[in-house]
């Protein structure tokens, strides 16, 4: 009873201050803020047509490096939380029953197409909506499809670790090259090319491709860890 009272009290306090703060912000009006600077500069300085990509990878690229680090830490932490030693004679099996033939054939047909779509999304991250994180998530869904339709489909954790490390090293070393050749970390040192061209934006395209590989391998690792470690004990309980 007293707990209910506290919950309602906290909710009303938080709700009052949120409403009080945000209902004073006029909806849909143009404001003078840093966003206008980014919109003006990104097609001129960097020749990047997607302003959001220009912000994420270049103007606030250091932020994105930290974000990728957080994702890496989450994947690693998940692995260490879920880790358990294999008992004798225990096999790691994901599903009790194999999926039906329709699902298996269908996922075989869909798998390369989803990979292709993911690759398209992160390669064209500076031209169209999308980017490294979105493309990586799409590729991870492809591997999820294979993991749930084939019980013996194995993801090599060695390969995942290598792809992840190489992508992270590429991101960080591009930043340091910018620091050496220019003035700031992640400064663009490649020719920027033409607006709306695939080879435009200098280092932005390369960084987003690296981010795409990194996110794809990390999410695949997360999905595989959760699926693999969960099943054997659940079977014992049944």
């Amino acid at each position: 009873m007293i707990k209910q009272f506290f919950v309602i009290l906290i909710l009303s306090i938080v709700g009052y201050f949120l409403v009080d703060a945000f209902f004073k912000v006029p909806f849909g009006e143009k404001r003078d803020n840093v966003g206008n600077y980014y919109i003006e500069k990104s097609p001129v300085d960097l020749k990047v047509s997607n302003s959001v990509t220009a912000i994420v990878v270049n103007y606030r690229g250091f932020d994105t490096l930290g974000e990728v680090t957080v994702l890496f830490l989450a994947a690693t932490g998940l692995g260490s939380i879920m880790y358990r030693r294999k008992q004798k004679g225990e096999k790691e099996v994901r599903a009790k029953n194999p999926s039906s033939r329709i699902i298996q054939i269908g996922s075989q047909i869909l798998f390369p197409m989803i990979i292709l779509l993911g690759g398209y999304v992160f390669i064209h991250g500076h031209l169209s909506p999308g980017g490294g994180f979105q493309g990586g998530a799409i590729i991870a869904t492809a591997s999820l499809l294979m993991l749930i339709s084939y019980r013996k489909f194995k993801v090599s954790h060695n390969a995942i670790t290598w792809i992840e490390s190489i992508a992270g090293v590429v991101f960080a070393s591009l930043g340091f090259i910018g620091l050496v050749l220019g003035r700031t970390f992640l400064e663009n040192f490649l020719p920027t090319g033409e607006l709306n061209d695939l080879l435009s934006g200098g280092i932005i395209g390369i960084i987003y491709i690296a981010v795409g590989f990194k996110v794809a391998s990390e999410l695949t690792g997360v999905i595989d860890t959760v699926l693999l470690n969960n099943r054997p004990e659940a079977q014992k309980e049944n």
Partner: peptide, 14 residues
């Protein structure tokens, strides 16, 4: 404004 969109992109991943 592209800045909130970029921030939300970060926030989704976190």
């Amino acid at each position: 404004d592209p800045v909130p969109q970029a921030l939300v992109l970060t926030a989704i991943v976190i």
